[in-house]
Amino acid sequence: MFSKTLHISTSPHIRQGMSTDMIMQHVVWAMMPLVIFAVVSFGLNALLVIITAVVSSVLTEHALCRWSGKSSTVSDWSAVITGILLGLTLPPIFPLWMTFLGGVVSIAIGKFVFGGLGYNAFNPALVGRAFLQAAFPVAITTWHPSFLEGRFLSISKSVAAFPFSTPVVDGISGATPLSAFKFDKVTTDTADLAFGLINGSTGETSAVLIILGGIYLAVRKMMNWRIPVAILTTVFVLSWILYIIDNQVYPSPQFMLFSGGLMLGAVFMATDMVGSPITPRGVMVYGAFIGLIVVVIRIWGGLPEGVMYAILLGNALTPHIDNLIKSRVYGTKKTKS
């Protein structure tokens, strides 16, 4: 009797049952409505941009793992997230070859050189996006009106541009609400902003869908809700103060909240677990810091949008926040840091 060899494991012998690849998959599901909305509002172009970003991220991850002799880590789904995020932050008519390059840079520079998943100091998608911004400043600020007729039938010349050819700027290009405000002081209706009936990057336009995705993840405890809450509160409060001071010069707080990449950044990028602090209090500081930088760049900086840089700076600050803000260990007096 009982002839089988017993399975030996160390305690605890039970697990909660959440796994890292599962979390990553859910993040992908939570972003799906955004992807679909991007395709509905921007058509084939957006679809191609997002698919290209995902394919290039996953291929890069796989190739680098193989090249360095490790088993492939694509099955943890994190490269898919990076690809989708990158795709969602690009203009809908961004040339595909540049998109592909962006995916390669995101994974290779943003993640792999740091040691892969878990070791990346910055959000990989933002690293790729920052690279594209620096390398192709014109293409990345060439926006495109949403809900154009025939968007499901035609592919923009710009999207299909041959690598390294002089960028083709499509005849039709519209200003985003943020740049319209920044440079021409034109504000956009908040409801249009919230529902995404505006121009912008592929996935930044529908704040409502972003928030729903965020709630989905937060309820499943797969996202730290404190991060978006801290960022958005900070942005709201600061811009509200400024708006009270002078509502001719400064935009309204609603406008600040719902425009540009703030929602997408606050909900899906700043919450990248690897680059954000580990303690609840540290996370609040991190969120407040990002919110502050967003306001500073948007209002006083030379760029219409500052979310990307704000989050990258927040990522850079994370190790320091973790060093400074530790929970008080049970049975000790106040932590000496």
């Binding site: 959440m18 796994s19 890292t20 690849d21 998943l117 878990g118 677990m273 690897v274 954000s276 303690t279």
Partner: peptide, 8 residues
């Protein structure tokens, strides 16, 4: 998997 610093 590697630690993803999820804080759980």
């Amino acid at each position: 998997f590697p630690c993803i610093k999820c804080g759980a």
